[in-house]
């Protein structure tokens, strides 16, 4: 089956990834992450000084700011801020930096669907670049259930999102990976490693779990990509010593 964006042939195919770390000069960490024509830039400042009223005595304060592609931030952006903050708070080992602030700014650069998933992936890369201590890394993927064909399409574009019956975004950590092909263990792994899930539209329970399963498998590729990106950066830094 050919997809609406014509570059992909399969429903379970992701668009090509692209990432770049350490782009911004004045932030402590920054990264860009692309899913095809969707692009998000993220900057991290911290652990830095924090306003006295936001200061927490036993851990770092995490502040997330989401900037839209154009115009002023609206309700949608505030919802994304909350989603990012609530997912990251348990992931960041904020107890290691009490009475400090970690500010994360997420800016959409190009919007062609799946922005929330792109933002999650950009944020984790920026956090890794900033050297913020984390419990694990995460990876995010969006999928839709097509209104006409009832097929599950991974990583939808804006065009495909318009035909969606329901949209699902899943975020998984890298602690448990698929060890066998048995679906039972698979299901457990999906449940254990889900950090965040956001669904809109009408869908059945079966559809939801099928989406989760498919996204979980796709996220393994995202994890692999993040690992390669970090590895390349480190090798570049170390080449003088090891050559």
């Amino acid at each position: 089956m050919s997809r609406l964006d014509r570059t992909r042939t399969s429903a379970h195919q992701l668009r090509p990834f692209f990432s770049s770390q350490n782009l911004l000069n004045r932030a402590d960490g920054s990264a860009q992450f692309d899913f095809g024509e969707s692009s998000v830039m993220c900057s991290v400042v911290g652990p830095a000084e924090v306003k006295l009223r936001d200061e927490k005595l036993d851990r770092a304060t995490i502040e997330v700011v989401v900037r839209p592609l154009v115009g002023l931030p609206g309700i949608k952006d505030k919802a994304r801020e909350q989603a990012l903050r609530e997912t990251l708070e348990p992931l960041v080992l904020s107890g290691l930096h009490p009475r400090t602030g970690i500010q994360i700014v997420v800016q959409t650069m190009k919007d062609d669907g799946s922005i929330l998933a792109t933002a999650f992936n950009a944020t984790i890369l920026a956090l890794l670049d900033a050297g913020i201590p984390l419990k694990s890394i995460l990876g995010a993927v969006t999928c839709i259930v097509d209104a006409e064909t009832n097929q599950i399409l991974l990583d939808p574009t804006t065009q495909e999102l318009a035909n969606a019956k329901s949209t699902h975004t899943f975020v998984f950590d890298n602690k448990s990976s698929i060890t066998s092909d048995s679906t039972q263990e698979d299901k457990e792994a999906v449940e254990v490693s889900t950090l965040y899930s956001d669904s809109t539209g009408l869908f059945s329970e079966e559809e939801y779990f099928e989406c989760a399963q498919i996204c979980y498998k796709a996220v393994q590729a995202v994890h692999g990509f993040i690992r390669t990106a970090v590895q390349k950066k480190l090798e570049k830094e170390q080449q003088q010593i090891h050559s």
Binding site: L128, K135, N174, V230, Q231
Partner: peptide, 19 residues
């Protein structure tokens, strides 16, 4: 994910949070 093998396959043994 990905427990680390101690045998040095490459010169650099790279770890990510959660390893």
């Amino acid at each position: 994910m990905a427990s680390i093998t101690t045998e040095e396959e490459s010169k650099l043994l790279i770890v990510l949070p959660g390893d």
